[in-house]
C-alpha cells in the first residue's frame, strides 16, 4: 500500500484516499435506520423465518446492545457493528483464492466471483460480520422490486459483507471526475451514514487532516472494537471516557 502511494505521488497522480468511519456511541439511539438503509442499498436478502431460527440471517450492519445496571435503573448502550475494514484483517490471509484482500484505499474487498465458499474468512473474523449465502438469495415481495442495479446479487455459495458502500464511493469518484473536480469530503457516503438521523456516523478520508472523520478521530474519544487483537480496524467508536 505504502509503495503504491509513493509511486502515485511520484507520478503526480491524485492522492489515494484512506477510507475510515467514526461512530459516536453517545449519539446512537439504536433506531436501526442504518440497518434498514444498508439492507436496501446493498440487496441484502431476507432469510425467512426458518433460516433465521437457525441463525442464518444476513445483516451487513447490526446493532449490538449493552445493558448496564439492574432494572429499572438500567442504561442501554448501542453499538452499530459492520465489517471493521481491518488493516490487519484476520479474514484475508486464510482465503485460499485471494477473494478477499485490502485495496490501496484501505477497503477490505470481497470479490464474489472469485470466492469458492470455503468460509474460512467468516470463521476467522472476530467481529462475525461475514455472511455466507447458503441458498440463492430471495426477497419477500415486494422487496424483490426494489433491488439496486449498482450492486451485484450474490449467488449461492459465496461470502458477502459490508463494503463501506464501495459502489457509492465509486459513483462519487465518477461524478467528481465528470465535473472535472477533486473528490470532496462528504462526497462518498455509505447508506448507513447517509440515513442516520442522529448523525452518529461520519465517513471520509482519514489521511486528509481537514476531513470530518479525521477530526473525529483526533477528538481523544476514539477507540476500536477488540483493539487488543491488533486487527487495526478502520471503524472507530467514539465514547465519553469515564
Amino acid at each position: 500500500m505504502a509503495e503504491q502511494t509513493t509511486q502515485q505521488a511520484e507520478q503526480g497522480a491524485e492522492r489515494t484516499p484512506q477510507w475510515a468511519m467514526a461512530i459516536d456511541l453517545d449519539r446512537c439511539t439504536g433506531c436501526e435506520a442504518c440497518v434498514v438503509a444498508c439492507a436496501s442499498e446493498n440487496n441484502v436478502p431476507t432469510a425467512g423465518e426458518d433460516q433465521a431460527a437457525m441463525g442464518r440471517t444476513k445483516h451487513w450492519i447490526r446493532i449490538d446492545r449493552y445493558y448496564e445496571g439492574e432494572f429499572p435503573d438500567i442504561k442501554v448502550k448501542y453499538r452499530p457493528v459492520m465489517c471493521q475494514q481491518c488493516d490487519e484483517a484476520p479474514c484475508e490471509p486464510v482465503c485460499p483464492v485471494n477473494a478477499t484482500y485490502q485495496n490501496a484505499e484501505g477497503l477490505n474487498v470481497q470479490i464474489y466471483n472469485r470466492c469458492i465458499g470455503t468460509r474460512y474468512c467468516a470463521n476467522n473474523c472476530p467481529y462475525t460480520v461475514r455472511f455466507f449465502n447458503w441458498f440463492a438469495p430471495e426477497w419477500a415481495a415486494p422487496l424483490n422490486l426494489q433491488l439496486n442495479p449498482d450492486v451485484s446479487i450474490r449467488p449461492a455459495g459465496v461470502m458477502e459483507k459490508c463494503t463501506f458502500c464501495a459502489h457509492k464511493i465509486k459513483r462519487a469518484k465518477l461524478d467528481a471526475d465528470a465535473e472535472g473536480r477533486e473528490l470532496a469530503d462528504g462526497d462518498a457516503q455509505p447508506a448507513c451514514v447517509q440515513s442516520c438521523p442522529a448523525e452518529a456516523m461520519v465517513f471520509g478520508d482519514m489521511s486528509d487532516a481537514d476531513s470530518k472523520v479525521a477530526k473525529q478521530l483526533g477528538s481523544g474519544r476514539s477507540g476500536q472494537l477488540l483493539e487488543s487483537l491488533g486487527t487495526k480496524p478502520r471503524v472507530f467508536y467514539l465514547e465519553k471516557a469515564d
Binding site: 484482500y101 470479490i111 472469485r114
Partner: peptide, 8 residues
C-alpha cells in the same frame, strides 16, 4: 487493476 474497480 484493482478487482474492486469492476467487481462489486
Amino acid at each position: 487493476d484493482d478487482c474492486l474497480a469492476c467487481h462489486f
